[in-house]
Simulated scan of single mutants.
Amino acid sequence: MLMTKGRYIMYEYIKGLVTNIMPTYITVEAAGIGYHILVANPYDFEQSDQPIQVYLEQVIRENEHTLYGFTDLDSKRLFEKLLAVSGIGPKSALAILASNDHTGLVRAISEQDIAFLTKFPGIGKKTAQQIILDLQNKLTDLPFYGQTDLNDLPAAMEAQAKGIPNQALADALLALEALGYTKKQLQGIEKKLATQALTDTAAYVSAGLKLLQ
């Protein structure tokens, strides 16, 4: 069993059915066992009768045995690199990944853009400087490195759908709060989100992150 900085590397991924989606986690059932997995944006996943593959990172500490999940291997690798930064824990790393603008994140680190990094919850100037110091020359193996275009907002944000249930927005606000944004920050964007015709909770979360940043 390999141990590094308090982390035991035991699982690479899990294949199973998504049986539950909550603002802070998803449940994936595999071989009759339901796995509680924390993810950056639970609403990126859908409940279905078709199995999916979720990449995993397990964190074991004195009072914590937790699984973190990712839609692809590159996101997991970026999460691992963020965890290696002094002062960055799993919650902060997930909050950073939730924006889905991994290209912008990598570019900000490469260009020493502290202002970009301090927009994430829990990331102050000192921590932003530490991220740059620790990762500036360690991201060249990621596919996001060297790209120039920021990820666009999901197409769902532009859809002029009607009749979106308020529950979708409520769930999105809970998911954003779980990432570390304050109630005051969320109150500041709630009315703007409510005026947007979005198709689902994932779109609300993405739109909310854009407004917060």
Rank of each mutant, 00 (worst) to 15 (best):
Q147F: 07
Q112W: 04
F120M: 12
Y145M: 13
T148Y: 13
Q130N: 06
E158A: 15
E111Y: 06
T103G: 00
P143D: 07
A155R: 08
G146L: 05
F144N: 03
K138G: 06
D141T: 10
Q129P: 02
I132L: 11
P90W: 05
L133H: 13
F144M: 12
N151S: 15
K126W: 11
Q129T: 04
L117Y: 02
N100L: 09
K138D: 15
A98V: 06
I123Y: 00
T140G: 08
T148Q: 12
K119I: 10
P143Q: 10
I109L: 14
E158K: 14
N100H: 12
L139V: 06
N100Q: 15
I96G: 01
P143I: 14
S86P: 01
I132Y: 01
F120W: 03
F144A: 13
F144V: 04
Q147R: 13
L97I: 13
S99R: 12
T118V: 12
I96K: 00
I123C: 00
I114S: 04
D134P: 05
R107H: 07
L97Y: 11
D134S: 12
P90Q: 11
T103F: 00
E158D: 09
Q112M: 14
Q112H: 10
V106L: 04
K126M: 08
D113R: 01
G104L: 09
T127W: 08
S110N: 12
Q136W: 01
A95H: 02
Q112D: 10
A156G: 13
V106S: 01
E111H: 08
Q136I: 14
I132G: 02
T103D: 02
T127P: 02
L142F: 02
T103S: 05
A156R: 07
F116D: 06
I123V: 12
A108Y: 02
L135F: 14
N100T: 06
D141R: 01
D134A: 14
P154V: 09
A98D: 03
I123P: 01
I123M: 05
N137S: 12
R107D: 09
